[in-house]
Amino acid sequence: MGSNGKSESSIKNRIRRLRFDHDEMTQQQLADRVGVSRQTIIALEAGKYLPSLPLAFRLAATFGVRIEDVFQMQVPESETSA
């Protein structure tokens, strides 16, 4: 199940970009394809909600890309320099 925890800010996604790259797909169209409400797509794009793994895979499959092309982990500089 998804999360509303603090880790959300460290995971970025390109859902909005990918939507526009796919014939300017609307949020409602994407929501219908992956089986969630439009509000959930809005929350995902704003980084307010982390999806479950099945939903993340469905999103990636909808855009025809790998899951890491949709979601990227932002590693803090303090961790990368160590």
């Binding site: 199940m1 998804g2 929501a31 219908d32 969630v36 409400s37 959930t40 999806p51 939903l55």
Partner: peptide, 16 residues
């Protein structure tokens, strides 16, 4: 038909 009434985020919010 054709409408998502309750998705995983809604369930998460309801549980919390």
């Amino acid at each position: 038909s054709g409408q998502v009434v309750l998705d995983e985020r809604d369930r998460s919010i309801a549980n919390l």
